[in-house]
């Protein structure tokens, strides 16, 4: 058995949750949470943590003199892919204009998730 500690982000209570893991990695128990949301959160965090990634990507030919445009992964991606997505974004640039919702990078780092623009740049 191994123990993992995490903080629930479900509400400002911020319960300290303890998750006990079997030797084969299965979850044996979740304790310390005050409500069910904490249990769900802890299981997801242990089994498959996911995050939305936000960053910027370089643009060229902007009429308003912008050098980059803000962007985000359209849905959450596996946490361990965060830096892969960021480094793919760094290697890319795109011409203006860019509109909110435009795909700026498709299938980012093989996650199957697109990165889309979150602001408008002329």
């Amino acid at each position: 058995m191994t123990k993992k500690e995490l903080t629930c982000i479900g509400c400002p209570m911020g319960c300290e949750i303890e998750v006990m893991l079997e030797d084969d990695g299965r979850i044996a128990s979740v304790t310390g949470n005050t409500c069910r949301r904490g249990d769900v959160y802890a299981r997801k965090e242990i089994e498959a943590p996911r995050r939305i990634v936000t960053s910027t990507i370089k643009v060229t030919g902007s009429l308003e003199g912008a050098s980059c445009v803000s962007c985000k992964t359209e849905t959450d991606i596996p946490k361990e892919k965060i830096f892969d997505v960021i480094s793919e974004l760094k290697g890319t640039s795109l011409p203006c204009p860019v509109k909110i919702g435009d795909i700026v990078l498709s299938n980012a780092a093989g996650t199957g998730v697109d990165v889309i623009a979150t602001s408008n740049v002329r």
Partner: peptide, 25 residues
């Protein structure tokens, strides 16, 4: 909001998690 490119805006108003520039837009 234009410089707050992270997500977490508008959960109450739009019931979705927008970035700052999207909320401003």
């Amino acid at each position: 909001l234009n410089q707050c490119i992270h997500n977490g805006f508008g959960l109450h108003t739009f019931k979705e998690e927008l970035t700052g520039p999207e909320y401003a837009d």
